[in-house]
Design a binder for these strands. Structure first.
Lengths: 199, 199
DNA sequence: ATCGCCCGGTACCGATCGGTGTACTTAGCT
DNA sequence: AGCTAAGTACACCGATCGGTACCGGGCGAT
């Protein structure tokens, strides 16, 4: 496994002091550049320049670009999705629909982009993309269960597919498709809920 | 416009004789390699080697890789989609559902792949991908209208989104998602048809 | 036979890629 | 202070990219 935990503080156990946060700047530049211009189109030289970090330093923090890409995906964790499932002020049904409220700030879910660009299912980043997408479906399934769906697993998988569809279609057409996805979600949810716990 | 017409015969009008079909071999190798290993991961050297064509010849038929990629997309036209809409033996409803019968031979619709890999909305291939995706939605809308949908445009766009979702999700998860997409399509169609021309 | 057109082979170009080596400067703790 | 780890600057490596120049051969039409 990778050292996913050391986000911004030192390692802790040993009294390891911490130099000026180069690692954080690298990850920050990754978030910006990989999303804006893709993974393969972003060279390490440019990335290090943006991060204001020596190339040497970058390769002391990450074994290679592959590992950096994987860590970039692990750090992404869109600010939207996680919070959606914790909002207690929403009904289960509203929580399911909230996943489709994309503020157009998300051009393309980077997990799809990484899987397509890297083109290797065994690449660390591809593995994590799979893992993450599965976890999203699981969370949707959980919310569907709370909402009282007759087949929560099916509804969760269906909603996950809608999210990916809107993401891919938005990218290809250069035009947002989240409203369409949400309209479908409404139909699916209404037809999957026994009309009892509709609200 | 490009000379999309000269598939295997000579130009005709002038008595231009025809060399051994180098162009066709190049396009054939493109179909194979671009789909199997992606666009950016396929070098022109490898492509020419597979096509058994000199590199010099390749660049006499195509101004550059970009143009070759665009032509590759134009030639793709999956054998599945076009035929689906012409099958007179199916009811309109069955025709709408037939679009989701993917024989697992389609790993990822190459239009999505191209748009993600090339990462430039103005790239000729990206333009054509947009164009093609729009035409698929239009054809679905047409079929939806024949089926008597209350809002054919909406249903067509929704079904198109399902196709893209299944395609993207299949790629990321390395596991087919067409059955899920079809299940959603059934719900959408049944809810969009006034139950009169259900069959 | 001879001419001209495709075509294949191959070496090559400049640019860029991911990644490294070396020597120097900084920052933080004791 | 003084030690040490972290970071910087910069040159450099081999590989590969898309694309081109040049040369020699095969084949169809005249």
């Amino acid at each position: 496994m990778y050292a996913a935990g050391m986000t911004e503080l030192e390692k802790g156990p040993l009294g390891r002091r911490r130099g000026r946060g180069a690692r954080e700047r690298i990850l920050g530049a990754s978030q910006q550049l990989f999303r804006e211009q893709g993974i393969n189109s972003t060279g390490m030289d440019q990335l290090c320049a943006v991060a204001q970090v020596s190339k040497r330093t970058a390769y002391q923090h990450f074994a290679g670009k592959d590992e950096l890409v994987a860590e970039y995906l692990r750090r992404f964790d869109p600010e939207v999705m996680p919070t959606v499932f914790d909002r207690a002020d929403l009904t289960p049904r509203e929580r399911l629909l909230a996943a489709f409220e994309m503020p157009a700030s998300t051009p393309l879910c980077p997990y799809i982009g990484a899987a397509v660009e890297l083109h290797d299912p065994e690449h660390p980043a591809s593995r994590y993309a799979r893992e993450y997408k599965t976890s999203i479906a699981a969370r949707l399934t959980g919310a569907a269960r709370e909402a009282g769906a007759t087949d929560p697993e099916q509804l969760g998988e269906q909603l996950a597919l809608l999210i990916d569809g809107a993401s891919a279609r938005t990218r290809v057409l250069n035009r947002e498709s989240w409203s369409t996805a949400k309209a479908i979600a409404v139909v699916l949810i209404d037809s999957a809920l026994p009309a009892s716990s509709a609200r």
